[in-house]
């Protein structure tokens, strides 16, 4: 149930990025898509049949009971992936916003339909 919801969020972001005319809103749409995928990745880490309340953080300490750990712990790999993907998303967003600022300086507007120098 929860995976289709993630995908719905992804589609919402895609819709926002493709149909909005304000450049900032387009960037927000991209961010929503990015976060939908991140959410999906984090949710992938939960083991089948373990409820959210039972799941453990994947940290081994000297006192950890390993059998219990292997049963319940969340897969740590998607979390590392999400961290990386957040950093990448940050880079893209920063660059996009920088370009938006520059576009505003040149065109004096945030409306994408008024930026039409390139044709053909």
């Amino acid at each position: 149930m929860i995976f289709p919801l993630c995908f719905a969020l992804f589609v919402v972001g895609l819709y926002c990025a493709l149909t909005k005319r304000n450049v900032i809103k387009i960037v927000i749409g991209l961010a929503i898509m990015e976060y939908a995928v991140n959410l999906f990745l984090v949710l992938l880490g939960y083991k089948k049949g373990i409820t959210l309340a039972d799941a453990q953080a994947p940290i081994i300490e000297p006192v950890t009971n390993l059998d219990d750990f292997f049963m319940k712990a969340v897969d740590p790999l998607p979390q590392a992936l999400v961290l990386t993907s957040i950093v990448i998303g940050l880079g893209v967003t920063a660059l996009a916003i920088a370009i938006c600022i520059r576009l505003y300086q040149r065109y004096g507007t945030f409306d994408i339909s008024e930026m039409r120098r390139l044709k053909g």
Binding site: T84, V87, G91, L95, I97, A98
Partner: peptide
């Protein structure tokens, strides 16, 4: 750097400062 460049964009002539976003951090 990203924050300060965005914040002072009108004062200092900014030259694509946010570009050097390298992901090898991760």
């Amino acid at each position: 750097l990203v924050f300060i460049i965005m914040a002072v964009a009108r004062i200092i002539d900014k030259k694509d400062g946010s570009k050097d976003y390298k992901q090898d951090q991760e």
